[in-house]
Design a protein around this nucleic acid. Structure first.
Lengths: 185, 185
DNA sequence: GTCCTAAACGCAAATTCTTAGCTTTAGCTC
DNA sequence: GAGCTAAAGCTAAGAATTTGCGTTTAGGAC
């Protein structure tokens, strides 16, 4: 039985999805956003444009779909032995990731997409990592904030500053956010 | 001598800009984002599409330009007599504004635009209001955080939650952000 | 006020993107 | 493996975008 009645998830459909995603990633690495188009992606993927239009609707939605995939957490965050250093290492990495040129594009694509599922999913991925760090702290018996507080005091300021303030924040700034958070516990 | 060599700011150019902005606002109030197009806006504004393309480049950039205009601060925030209540009133209003359906669209349009000038300008508008509140607190002799701290602890979480968390936050939640900020002073 | 220059607009042709209808292919169930 | 149908391919019509060129007009100089 398939997960959703009458929706095909394997075989050709899966291959097309894979080919289109790969094409987007390839093209993103060598062309600017304004040079991308549905027909171009379709050609590189070896499918017809109408297939892409039917499945994703617009280039924007396709880009958001690809961005969400790229944000999927791969490895659990490094265990440095203490909450303070775990959170700082993660915050630093996160800031570097989303302030990088491709990182900005991904977040931009997520926010620009019509529905909010993609952005929400992305935040959930983020919280998975945060919770892994907090769980370790709990097991060590360290006092720790909850995941929502970390989101409000570390993740949110990082994302906000990258998108709404001029100039790139220094990696150290992410660590000061963690310092302040832990000082207020 | 004109401010920027060879850039026209008055007369016909100004009228066209006004007409196009007005057309966008009119259309936004009665149509969904996906129904907007450059030719449609141009027609309502009584100009040719090529004029819009040449001045703004894409629909996205035009929408970001309009959104920035709408975010411009109008009145100074209400003076309720104390920092705590001033900040809470502002935070509540801000949350309501950007979590509203048109508000979300404006922020979306800002972030989606190519350059970052529009988003940055928007944050500056926001900080103008925050600073007005903090200045009043300073004059009253109240202890107060700096504007960047308010941005990190109130503005950023509000924006982040509206765009990356599912479900609409309650207005009261914005006030708790202020409570926590002031408690940690 | 008049003239000059170039920025900005209008128009229209050429190109590219998007959509819709129909046909074909290939997963899935039995 | 036969039948069913979602999803892909194909093609043509329609819409949006880009571009070149002529015209208008704002802004500065005299």
């Amino acid at each position: 039985m398939s997960p959703i009645q009458g929706t095909r998830t394997g075989g050709r459909s899966a291959r097309v999805q894979q080919a289109v995603h790969d094409a987007v990633r390839d093209l993103q690495s060598e062309r600017s956003r304004s040079e991308l188009s549905v027909p171009l992606v379709a050609q590189h993927a070896g499918v017809t444009p109408s297939t892409v239009y039917r499945r994703w609707g617009t280039l924007q939605e396709l880009l958001a779909d690809v961005a969400r995939e790229r944000m999927r957490p791969d490895d659990p965050p490094d265990d440095t032995g203490a909450l303070d250093t775990d959170l700082k290492a993660w915050a630093r990495l996160y800031l570097e990731e989303i302030s990088s040129s491709p990182g900005r594009e991904y977040v931009r694509d997520l926010v620009a997409s019509e529905g909010e599922e993609n952005s929400e999913q992305c935040n959930r991925y983020c919280q998975v990592k945060i919770r892994a760090i907090l769980d370790r702290a709990a097991r060590r018996g360290e006092p720790h904030p909850d995941a929502d507080t970390v989101t409000d005091r570390v993740t949110a300021p990082i994302v906000f500053r990258v998108f709404f303030s001029q100039g790139d924040p220094e990696p150290e700034w992410a660590e000061t956010l963690v310092d302040k958070l832990l000082a207020d516990l």
